[in-house]
């Protein structure tokens, strides 16, 4: 693909717009669905209070740890760490937003928005790297569905949405609106959050969306 793209530089006239005919391969036809064999917490129980979320997430991280470490060793790198906060501390920081008052910003050189955003990405990266390190060649879509459907961490992200959306800090409201939950997972949000997202997009197409929300 790179050679095809670079070869466009040798065209004599432009602009040039070419479609590359090969798509990335999806899961093999007939292949078994990937299943994470690592026990996860039960999100319904974890959702009862902030302490429950934290316990659920830390338990999951402990169970996933061996796969995270093996993946890091195999690849010689990790993408976890951009926040500059240890990932367990990142989890505690995130969960604290569900309580009466967030814990002190562990990155005082950054705004709360930036520190929280990076902590969220580190936590998510920890789960995703742990998942793709397991046997089974999980696809990106399968890992995402697992994260958002089956983990306490995914439920934690969902639980944060109404809290941040109601914040006095406009940056945190923006985070809730645009940078917390991928659009592909919108349909799993509670109704009020879903409506907030769609309103933020200025859409007039609500009636054509998932019947659950119409």
């Amino acid at each position: 693909m790179l050679i095809a793209a670079l070869a466009l530089l040798e065209e004599e006239k432009g602009p040039v717009l070419e479609d590359f005919p090969e798509d990335a391969l999806g899961p093999r036809a007939g292949a078994e669905a990937w299943v994470c064999r690592v026990p996860m917490s039960r999100p319904a129980e974890a959702a009862s209070d902030p302490t429950g979320y934290l316990g659920g997430v830390l338990s999951e991280m402990n169970n996933l740890g061996v796969w995270y470490d093996l993946g890091k060793e195999k690849r010689g790198r990790t993408t976890v760490g951009v926040s500059g906060i240890e990932v367990e501390a990142a989890a505690r920081f995130i969960v604290s937003f569900l309580g009466d008052a967030p814990v002190e910003n562990p990155r005082p050189d950054l705004s709360v928005f930036d520190a929280l955003k990076l902590a969220l990405e580190d936590l998510r990266a920890y789960y995703f790297e742990s998942a793709v390190s397991q046997p089974g060649n999980a696809s990106a879509g399968q890992v995402a569905e697992w994260f958002w459907d089956e983990t306490s961490a995914g439920k934690l992200f969902m639980a944060l949405e109404p809290v941040l959306a109601g914040s006095d800090d406009k940056k945190l409201r923006f985070l809730a609106e645009r940078m917390l939950i991928p659009r592909r997972q919108f349909h799993k949000m509670p109704e009020a959050g879903y409506q907030r997202y769609m309103a933020s997009l200025g859409t007039r197409h609500l009636s054509s969306l998932d019947p659950k929300h119409t």
Partner: peptide, 24 residues
């Protein structure tokens, strides 16, 4: 620069990062 020293701090939550996580 070693791949292990390349990180990502993109703000969007919408795009898939699993490819980058496995191979820079």
């Amino acid at each position: 620069l070693a791949a292990s020293d390349i990180y990502m701090s993109h703000l969007s939550t919408n795009f898939d990062r699993t490819g980058f996580q496995q191979d820079v």
